[in-house]
Design a protein around this nucleic acid. Structure first.
Length: 280
DNA sequence: GCACTGTCCTGTTTGC
DNA sequence: TGCAAACAGGACAGTG
């Protein structure tokens, strides 16, 4: 599932191909994935425009068009955004939107589970994209500090796992990188966010930045669906400590990793390295 | 305001 | 072998 490192990798891989290209036609294959405006208006807003640049906010990918419209993608679970050069082949059974560019190439949005969402928004209506408007500070940004984390977690009874997945608290984190960051920080996912000490929050702020930076450096994590803009897999799955390794031995202490549900999300952790009861 | 649950959705895995 | 149920999970609506 694409999280911040995956979206950033997609952005970087697409930009050299599509920046400066003009959108000549659009095929809407599953209209219900277009959340704003209505599909007809959506197409009208992006047709015959030129892609000026690509931005990312949290897990949202924004194609900035030269008419002050942002074409916004959220890939959710299984969405993919792939560049197909002219004469290139695309055989996906799950294509939902195809954007034809002026050099004969295509930008294809495919999505198996169809959870992904699309928007074409003028700059003065970006607030309508609720999740994006309310995004918290992103990892690796100057705003994502220990002081911020400490204030945001203060008094919170919610579990730290759920807290970190809340995009309003930290923008861009998802299930994989939260499990990894909590493991590296030695924090049990069921701990209450407000119970974390300053040294723990300091370590957590560091490990969140660490796993996101490593994920980007590895071109993202591919378990099943994720591909970058060129259709290539990432390699971070080879360096994971806990995600997808339940039942296997902890890379640090050898204890079998466990899997529980937290807030409805599969959660992997090491019961030895991440104790629930903190020794005083 | 906060914490939690159900829902959407379909390919894959698991169990019988 | 074949079928049905369970599972995967990001974001949001709804509930208490």
């Amino acid at each position: 599932m694409p999280e911040m490192p995956e979206i950033e990798t997609i952005r970087r891989s697409l930009e050299p191909h599509i920046q400066g290209r003009k959108i000549t036609s659009v095929e809407v294959l599953l209209p219900r994935q277009i959340k704003w405006p209505e599909p007809e208006s959506f197409v009208a807003r992006i047709l015959q425009t030129t892609i000026a640049g690509l931005d990312r906010r949290g897990k949202y990918l924004l194609l900035q068009l030269d008419n002050q419209v942002s074409l916004i993608f959220h890939l959710r679970m299984t969405g993919q955004l792939v560049y197909v050069p002219s004469m290139g082949q695309d055989n996906s059974h799950h294509n939902r939107l195809i954007i034809h560019l002026d050099d004969g190439s295509k930008l294809i949005f495919s999505d198996t589970r169809t959870f992904g969402t699309l928007y074409a928004m003028h700059q003065d209506e970006l607030w309508r994209v609720q999740g994006m408007a309310e995004l918290g500070p992103e990892p690796l940004s100057p705003e994502f500090t220990v002081a911020y984390l400490s204030k945001a977690a203060e008094g919170r009874k919610t579990k730290i796992k759920s807290f970190l997945l809340d995009q309003r608290k930290v923008g861009g984190l998802g299930n994989i990188y939260v499990d990894e960051a909590l493991f590296l920080a030695g924090i049990h996912p069921l701990r209450q966010a407000g119970s974390l000490t300053l040294p723990e929050l300091t370590k957590l702020q560091y490990t969140v930045n660490q796993v996101i930076a490593e994920g980007i450096a590895d071109g993202g994590t591919t378990f099943r669906d994720y591909r970058n803009g060129n259709g290539e897999k990432g390699s971070h799955q080879e360096h994971l400590y806990v995600y997808g390794r339940d039942g296997q031995d902890c890379r640090i202490c050898g204890t079998p990793l466990e899997k529980i549900k937290v807030g409805g999300r599969g959660t992997r952790f090491c019961p030895h390295c991440q104790p629930l009861e903190v020794e005083s």
